[in-house]
Computed example of a mutant assay.
Amino acid sequence: MFRIRLPLRRALALGLPMAWGAVAIGYKLTCPLAQQDGTVARVATSAVFFAVGTGLVLHVRRALLRELRQVRRVAGAAQNVLLRPPPARVDGLGTAAFQISADGTARVGGDLYDVIATEHGVRAVMGDVRGHGLAALGTVAAVLGSFREAVHDEPDLGRVLRRLDRALARHLRERARAEHPSAGREPESPVAEEFVTLVLLEIGRDGTLHALNCGHPWPYRLTGTRVEPLARTDPLPPLGPFPLPRDLPVLHPPRLRPEEMLFLYTDGAEDARDSRGRFFPLRATLAGAVHIDPLTPQVLLGAVLRALRRHTAGRPTDDIALLVLRNERTRDHCTSSGARGTAREPTAHPHSTTHLEHNGT
């Protein structure tokens, strides 16, 4: 059926311009008025050709708008597959996430995130691919695909990072070969101008934290009314330009206590500017939002999104991804689960956080 409709659509798309052209040619060749040299004849001829030209322009415009809407639908579907909204609760952690693309045409960006419950703990990633739009989509797919497989296979967070590094290098080599098929040899440096910043987190059932950071902003920890970076150490270089060191410095921040939150973000949030060129005060916005009662991950995310849109007038210049994690386990549960090991808690039913935009954010 699709094969029949496609040629029919193409024929209809060409039919109207041909009809307009036939009208113009028929008028010029057969109409007596078109053969005259008087003012009236010239005005009439000009009007006919103006009408034909206007019709052609409007037809092309409608065709381009249809194609643009189709591209947006396809890109949006691809984005939804890659950046699956996490459930509202993942193994005792409340979650909320949102992504804003700077590419208003394609509605896709180069940011990535995910939260997955594993037998090793809840593992989360927040990353930023160089560039944005459709060009970054393949790299996002390669990194996220590797993460979703490695978090279940690898007991050590450092080995998860090495899997992501290998997946990125492999993807870039394949892309370089596809872009330069005539080279006939392996590209010398396919990652010279490509990189991915990301932060990896592992949160145990007792709130124990493990973290690895490759060139990404550290998440903020929200404790009561305090907002502090999760760590202050320098991160590793981004994935891509440089090989990972032999010994990976896995950080062990203080455990995430009940009701504490982690706010993960990409640098597009702090780098967002207003009309005067001022940066978005993310930390101050979080410090103001912690006084909201009740403060859930969705409420916190909504408050930051509203502030961001006011600051940028709804026109961000870079992709922005936000992810909130909240420890919703009770103190007694955290203590007992830490003694039992990694026993799994049933995950709550999924709830898409993409509905935040429809709730006033």
Rank of each mutant, 00 (worst) to 15 (best):
29 L>P: 10
29 L>Y: 08
30 T>R: 08
33 L>D: 05
33 L>Q: 11
35 Q>R: 14
35 Q>P: 07
42 R>C: 08
45 T>C: 12
45 T>Y: 06
46 S>W: 11
47 A>L: 15
48 V>T: 05
48 V>C: 06
48 V>I: 11
49 F>I: 07
49 F>L: 13
50 F>G: 15
50 F>Q: 11
52 V>K: 05
52 V>C: 13
52 V>Q: 09
53 G>L: 14
53 G>E: 08
54 T>M: 14
59 H>D: 12
59 H>L: 13
59 H>C: 12
61 R>C: 13
64 L>A: 15
66 R>I: 05
68 L>R: 15
70 Q>T: 12
71 V>W: 01
72 R>A: 10
73 R>C: 04
73 R>S: 07
75 A>C: 10
76 G>F: 00
77 A>N: 04
78 A>K: 08
80 N>I: 02
81 V>K: 00
81 V>A: 12
81 V>W: 01
82 L>W: 07
82 L>K: 03
83 L>T: 07
84 R>S: 13
84 R>E: 14
84 R>F: 11
86 P>E: 00
86 P>G: 01
87 P>V: 13
90 V>F: 08
90 V>L: 02
91 D>K: 02
94 G>F: 07
95 T>R: 01
95 T>S: 08
97 A>Q: 05
101 S>H: 04
102 A>N: 06
103 D>K: 01
104 G>N: 09
104 G>Q: 11
106 A>H: 02
110 G>M: 01
114 D>H: 06
114 D>I: 11
115 V>S: 01
116 I>Q: 06
117 A>E: 08
119 E>L: 12
122 V>C: 07
124 A>P: 13
125 V>I: 13
125 V>Q: 03
129 V>C: 04
129 V>P: 05
129 V>N: 02
130 R>G: 06
130 R>N: 06
132 H>Q: 02
133 G>T: 00
136 A>C: 05
